[in-house]
Amino acid sequence: MATCPQCRSVGDRGRECPNDNFTFVDDTALATAPDGHLLGQTIGRKFVPMELLGEGGMGYIYKAIQKPVGRAVALKVLKDNFMHDSVIRDRFLREAEAIARMSHRNIVMLFDSGLDEGTGVLYMAMEYLNGRPLADELRQHMSLKRMLDISMGIAAALAEAHKHGIIHRDLKPENVFLVRDELGQEVPKVLDFGFARLQGATKKLTQAGIAFGTPHYMAPEQAMGLEGISAAADVYALGVIMYEMVCGDVPYDGTNAMEIMNKQVNAPLPKVVPKAGLNPPHKFVQLVESCMQKEPEDRLADGSQVLTVLQQIAEGVEQASMNLSAPMLAPQGNANNTKFRQQSSTGGVGAKQMWLLVGGAVAFLLLGILLALVITRL
C-alpha cells in the first residue's frame, strides 16, 4: 500500500496524488523517514524521492525516480540547517562540479544538480548504484585476481580525476562501491567527492592547519594539515586500501583520531604480512609499500602511474597462471631416448644383438672373398 505524504490519501505507488501533486510512497518508506523529509515531492522538476537510503552529517541520500523516464537515481540533498553555511554550501556545489568534470566507468555519474525552487534545497542526482561498499568485503577472503581488479578500478578512477585536476582527499573503502555491469562483471565505483580539491578553484574551503579526511586513510601531509595537498595523497590512501586487502587490517590504528594521525606521520610502516592463503607477487608488495611512503615525492605521483604498475603485475600473474596450466611436453631428444630404451627392454635390437649381427656379416663377407680366390685359381 502507498500513501500520499501530504494529504495521507491512499493510492498506487509512483502515481501522482490528484489532491496536491505529491507522489504516492510506500508506507514502510514513510515510517522510516525523518521529520521534514522530501518523500513524494518533486525536486528539480523531475526527481521524486521514494525511499531514504542514508543520512550523513550534512545531508540525506534518497532513492528517487526520474520523471518521466522512470529511471532510478540517487538523490543527495543538503540539510536545511546547512543552507545558510556558505562553506558547506560551496563544498556541496564543488562536489557536483568535480563529478561533472569526469566521465568514467569507475566514477559515479552525475545527471543533474542545482537549487530546487519549490523546496529551497540543494540537490545532486547521480546514478543509483545497486551493490555494496568495499568496506563490507575487506574482512572476507579475496582472491589475488579480484584484489588486483579492484585496485586497478580505483587507480583508473584516480587517474581520471587527477587528469582533470581533481584530488579526492577522502578515498576509503566506504567511498568505493562494488557493482555489476550488464555482463555481470564486478566494477568498483569511486564516489563522495565532498572533500575534493579542484585545480583552478579560486575559493579556498579549507584552512591551513586543519586536517580533512578519514584518519585511517589519511596521508601524513593531510594529517599535519599542510597546504598544497597533491595527487600523491590519493595514492597514499589507495596504498592503505591495498594494504588492508592484503593484510586484513589497516596499517595504523588507535583509540582516537589524534593517535591514528600521529602514527600516520611518525610511525614506521608495518611489514606487509599477507593473509593466510594469499601469496601476492613481490612486486605488488613493493607497490603497496611505495604508495605508503611518508614523503609525497617518494610515492608514485598519481593514479595513472599506479594503474600502469598494477596492469604490469596483473599481466605477469595471468602469464604465470597460463604457464602453470599449459601441458608439459617432453623435449624431442628425451622422447627418442625413451623410445630407444623401450625397444631395448621389449625385444627390440639392443647393443649386444647389434654386435652379433655385425660380426656375422663380416664373417660371411670374408668367406665369400676366400671362395672367390679359390675359384679363380682353379
Score class of each variant (00 low, 15 high):
2 A>V: 05
6 Q>G: 04
8 R>Y: 00
9 S>D: 10
13 R>A: 13
19 N>C: 00
23 T>S: 09
25 V>L: 05
28 T>D: 10
29 A>N: 07
31 A>H: 03
33 A>Y: 03
34 P>N: 06
40 G>F: 14
46 K>A: 12
46 K>G: 08
48 V>R: 08
50 M>Q: 13
51 E>H: 15
52 L>V: 06
55 E>R: 12
56 G>Y: 00
57 G>H: 09
58 M>F: 13
59 G>C: 05
60 Y>N: 14
62 Y>W: 13
63 K>H: 06
63 K>A: 13
64 A>Q: 01
67 K>Y: 05
70 G>V: 07
71 R>Y: 12
73 V>N: 09
77 V>G: 02
79 K>R: 12
81 N>L: 08
83 M>V: 08
88 I>Y: 03
89 R>T: 13
89 R>A: 07
95 E>Y: 09
96 A>L: 03
97 E>P: 01
100 A>T: 05
104 H>G: 06
104 H>A: 07
106 N>Y: 10
106 N>P: 07
106 N>G: 02
107 I>K: 12
115 L>R: 11
118 G>V: 08
122 L>F: 09
123 Y>H: 14
123 Y>N: 07
123 Y>W: 05
127 E>Y: 15
127 E>A: 13
133 P>R: 02
135 A>V: 09
136 D>Q: 12
137 E>N: 02
137 E>M: 15
143 S>C: 08
146 R>Y: 01
149 D>W: 10
149 D>K: 14
152 M>P: 11
153 G>R: 06
155 A>H: 02
156 A>L: 03
157 A>D: 06
161 A>N: 10
163 K>M: 10
170 D>R: 13
170 D>Q: 07
175 N>S: 04
177 F>T: 00
178 L>H: 09
179 V>D: 10
179 V>I: 13
182 E>Q: 04
185 Q>T: 10
190 V>Q: 11
194 G>M: 04
195 F>D: 15
197 R>W: 11
199 Q>A: 15
200 G>R: 04
203 K>N: 12
204 K>E: 10
204 K>C: 00
206 T>L: 03
209 G>K: 02
210 I>Q: 01
211 A>N: 04
212 F>W: 12
215 P>H: 01
217 Y>S: 07
220 P>W: 00
223 A>G: 04
225 G>K: 01
226 L>V: 08
228 G>Q: 09
229 I>S: 01
230 S>N: 01
231 A>H: 14
235 V>D: 09
238 L>F: 06
242 M>A: 06
243 Y>T: 04
246 V>G: 06
248 G>Y: 02
249 D>M: 12
254 G>W: 05
256 N>Y: 03
263 K>D: 06
264 Q>F: 02
264 Q>I: 00
265 V>L: 05
265 V>I: 15
266 N>G: 00
271 K>H: 11
272 V>R: 04
277 G>D: 11
278 L>M: 11
278 L>D: 07
285 V>F: 03
288 V>I: 15
291 C>I: 04
293 Q>M: 11
294 K>C: 07
297 E>D: 14
304 S>N: 03
306 V>A: 08
313 I>T: 10
325 S>P: 00
326 A>M: 11
327 P>N: 08
328 M>K: 08
328 M>H: 12
329 L>E: 13
336 N>E: 07
339 K>F: 14
345 S>K: 09
346 T>V: 12
346 T>I: 08
346 T>P: 14
350 G>L: 08
352 K>H: 10
355 W>E: 14
359 G>I: 13
360 G>V: 02
363 A>D: 15
368 G>H: 11
370 L>H: 11
371 L>M: 14
371 L>C: 02
373 L>S: 15
